[in-house]
Simulated scan of single mutants.
Amino acid sequence: MEQILRPIYQERASQESTLGVVLIEKREKVSPITDTFDSVLLIITKENDTSVFTKHYTYLDKKAAMHIVTEKQLRKWLLLGTNRKIVDWLFHGRIIYDRNEFMEKLKTELKDYPFYGRKIKMGIEFAKLIRRYLEGKVFFEEKNYMDAYNHIVESLHHLARLAVLENGLPPEVTVWSQVKQMEPAIYKLYEELILSEEPIHKRLELLFLASEFHIHSRTNDGAQHIREVMERQESWTIQELHEQEELKNYSSDLEVFIEYLVEKDLISIKGVMTKSEGIFHRYYYVKS
């Protein structure tokens, strides 16, 4: 397939802004890593009109995808862990063009600094975990067991990714294979949820209790990033927190995360008088 794709990537490689080209080929009959495509071309550029530009190609019975990604977008994915396939592509793909050894240096950087972006990744995963856990618990208490089941599965996935990050590695697409080796207790929870023959409400009851323990033991580490950001100024309105560049990445999970940390006394509140009697602006701060 590389021979067929060569004119396509050579055209891109000739452009000055292109930093590297990686070819990823399907390893299984149905490959989620390549989104079922036979081949994927990942082209990294210094700059482009759009941060991600994608094209699909067909040749006889084969299909290929080309993704042109800016270096800025690539590094954002690596920092936040929001595109887990990228790590697999970089490590297992074949470099077929490398301007000034950009790709080799990037791979070395990822190997030498496995904790790259670890705090923010852990914070984001922990915030997602908290939301899914709290929402799932409400469904459970309302006896909406199927909705509760869905949420506890999602929360376990976030817990799994968090556990991998704690071990200094990026979570891969096959995160449960990683967790089985690193955190067998969490893997066992997942097994019990999906394989147990207990009634669903019994399984959920056990999982919510066990999850509470795992969440509690990880709260300080999960809150480290947001607390460090908040220490940069005396106090914050919720709007200021939403607009803070790093905290934007917490997206819709930010507010429920903050309220959870308030409850755990890791973030404090102070009231600032408004023009209306008895109503106060709510400001957030971290005790020094």
Rank of each mutant, 00 (worst) to 15 (best):
V179R: 02
E234Y: 11
G168S: 06
S252C: 05
E205M: 04
S177Y: 13
N249T: 01
L241G: 09
H214N: 10
S196P: 01
E212T: 03
P184R: 00
E234F: 03
A163R: 10
P184I: 00
R203G: 02
F208K: 08
I200D: 04
K180H: 11
N220E: 15
R227E: 14
I194F: 05
V229S: 01
A163Y: 10
I238K: 11
Y250M: 01
E197A: 13
E198P: 00
S235M: 14
N249I: 01
E172N: 10
S196M: 06
E172T: 10
F213H: 09
I215G: 05
E166Y: 05
M182I: 13
S177E: 15
L193S: 10
N167V: 09
K188G: 07
I226V: 02
Y190F: 13
E166V: 02
I194H: 03
E246N: 02
K202E: 09
S235C: 08
Q244I: 05
L247I: 04
M230V: 06
Q224E: 12
V175Y: 09
H201A: 13
F213M: 00
G168C: 02
I186V: 03
P184S: 00
L241F: 06
E183G: 02
E172K: 14
E231W: 15
R218A: 03
F208S: 05
K180I: 03
L169M: 12
E172Y: 11
S177D: 15
Q178V: 03
Y250S: 05
R227C: 13
Q181V: 08
K202Q: 10
E205G: 08
Y187H: 01
R232K: 15
S252L: 12
L207D: 08
I186E: 08
E231S: 15
I194G: 03
V173P: 04
H201R: 14
Q181C: 04
L195P: 03
R232N: 15
H214I: 07
E243W: 05
Y190P: 03
K180G: 04
Y250A: 01
T219D: 07
S252R: 14
Q244P: 02
Q244T: 08
H216R: 15
E205H: 04
E246F: 00
S251C: 03
R227M: 15
Q239N: 14
A210S: 10
S217H: 14
S235D: 15
S251I: 07
N167R: 15
H214M: 00
Q239R: 14
Q181F: 11
S235I: 07
V229G: 04
E183S: 05
I226S: 02
E191A: 12
P184Q: 02
L207S: 11
